[in-house]
Design a protein around this nucleic acid. Structure first.
Lengths: 111, 111
DNA sequence: CAGTATCCACTAAGATACTG
DNA sequence: CAGTATCTTAGTGGATACTG
């Protein structure tokens, strides 16, 4: 969202998923719509500040939708937008590649 | 290569392509094997230090192959390994997604 | 519950100069 | 040509405490 004159589509795509936890967030939201607290559990290790921050960026990029219910206690739900779903689909082959790689790493004994 | 206990394959894949210029490098090498200087031209804006660094990380991850010829003046050629080619293939849908996104951004007037 | 505010630490990356 | 060395900076992310 910031580098702007992208060299290629890949460049533009990476720009969106760049951020330590973003793909994990997108991944988590693929399975279900989530509340803030659920997300925190699904993305282990992330701090509230960073989670909020990356969620906002993702929302600004049109990847996630933020639905705020005006109740007490507060309730906010995050879900993928259509664009987000598409991104997730585009991400799938990469995930498969990474999975194979993890297996290889385990075999060749890095773990 | 560092985060190690990956949550999913996507996590592992992103770890490999993480670095400001890595996808651009991989993209450039998809079209051809390149010498250091060529790469520098194909990845506009990268400094020598960073290019070297990311190339080494990519090599350590088994994505690129570094072939050094013992001549003078020095000649080194970089190319994708089999794993690198696979990664590139896995990256293609993401590139297509990004391309669509770029088009949308241009339409809706951010440029 | 779902954040915000603050302050700190680390690292990625940039500029520049030098070398075999 | 293909790097390496050094220094500096910007930005990202982490920990913790506080709020509507």
């Amino acid at each position: 969202m910031e580098k702007q004159p992208y060299v290629c589509g890949l460049d533009a795509a990476v720009d969106v998923i760049d951020g330590k936890w973003k793909v994990l967030i997108i991944w988590a939201l693929n399975h279900q719509r989530c509340r803030f607290g659920e997300l925190k559990r699904l993305v282990p290790g992330v701090s509230e500040k960073v989670l909020t921050q990356q969620l906002r960026e993702l929302a600004a990029d049109g990847i996630v939708h933020r639905e705020s219910y005006d109740v007490v206690p507060p309730k906010v739900e995050y879900s993928l937008t259509g664009l987000g779903e598409e991104l997730n689909t585009a991400l799938r082959p990469l995930g498969a590649w990474g999975k194979r790689r993890m297996a290889t790493l385990a075999e060749t004994g890095r773990g």
